[in-house]
């Protein structure tokens, strides 16, 4: 089987152009009769650029193909793309050697099981805290960023109901003052969750809108929820960065230009959350007035 991968660089629509291809790719390959014990060759010749953090989404799809006992091989990778995918360790999952990250700008590609909270925490510490290449960020910004990443991971664990794990990858752009990080899962997606637990049959992009609004939650059971995505959104709005969510066929993003949504031509089989932050942000994330501890409850 030979599937052509034909995404291309488009800065302003990076997510949409990438995901227009990936789900179609997945849809065209994920047929049990065609895709069991197969050798699947991904011809990358049309890919002239690949956003490194998007390895999380690509890796999720390729992992699910591997679960069906298929052998995945990436071929005809352009040197620039191969360099990106080798430095962050992605290609070492597909038989290639990892090359040293000379500029120290990669946040390595990793897969976690849904119970790997502690491994994920250690990964974040080693990738973001204990390394000299990190751009200088205010301690308040760094704290908010770490919390945001953990919120994304917790969200994936709680809501995806996935058995295939959670995939993450990132990239630093020191000169641009930008830090990208993406978390992907192959779970049921937001549209299905909103339908199952809130009883609303919404379009995929409207389900994301619903889930990102205050006090809306698909949580059931003794542990409340419904705050993680709102906290993320507030942080990004203050930071001036970008938060994008793809779930099923829905696309949602918030930037300093506001919220926008779109319908993708082909659904992604799960959820992907991308966070891009301005590392030069000098906003204070400290509170000017302290909350009286007696007023909390």
């Amino acid at each position: 089987m030979n599937v052509e991968a034909s995404w291309r660089d488009s800065h302003s629509h990076r997510f949409i152009t990438t995901f227009k291809v990936l789900p179609r790719w997945r849809a065209s390959t994920h047929k049990p009769k065609d895709c069991f014990l197969e050798r699947i060759e991904i011809d990358m010749s049309s890919a002239t650029w690949f956003e490194a953090d998007m390895c999380a989404a690509l890796g999720a799809i390729l992992y699910s193909l591997g679960q069906d006992l298929n052998t995945v091989e990436l071929t005809n990778i352009a040197p620039k793309v191969r360099d990106v995918l080798s430095r962050n360790g992605f290609l070492s999952h597909y038989g290639r050697a990892k090359i040293p990250d000379r500029w120290g700008s990669t946040i390595s590609y990793q897969r976690f099981d849904d119970r790997d909270d502690h491994f994920f925490a250690r990964y974040i510490e080693s990738q973001f805290i204990h390394r000299s290449e990190m751009p200088e960020m205010s301690s308040g910004l760094l704290k908010k960023f770490r919390e945001s990443i953990f919120e994304i991971f917790s969200n994936a664990v709680w809501h995806s109901r996935t058995q295939l794990g959670i995939f993450s990858c990132g990239q630093l752009f020191p000169t641009k003052g930008l830090l990208n990080f993406t978390v992907a899962d192959l779970g049921v997606g937001m549209r299905q969750n909103v339908q199952d637990y809130a009883g609303f049959d919404l379009a995929a992009e409207d389900a994301i809108v619903w889930a990102t609004e205050e006090n809306n939650t698909t949580r059931r059971g003794p542990i409340p929820g419904g705050l993680g995505l709102k906290l993320l959104r507030e942080f990004i709005d203050l930071n001036g960065g970008c938060l994008q969510i793809v779930s099923d066929a829905g696309f949602w993003q918030t930037t300093n230009e506001g919220v926008s949504t779109a319908r993708l031509g082909h659904p992604f089989p799960g959820t992907v959350v991308y966070i891009g932050i301005d590392t030069a942000d000098l906003n204070s994330y400290s509170l000017t007035t302290e909350l009286d501890a007696n007023e909390i409850f």
Binding site: K143, E147, F150, E151, S154, I223, P224, G225, L227, G228
Partner: peptide
């Protein structure tokens, strides 16, 4: 050093 809403919901919210 770091807290999330998921942790606090489980610890205290419930």
């Amino acid at each position: 050093s770091t807290l999330t809403s998921a942790f606090l919901n489980a610890a205290i919210g419930q």
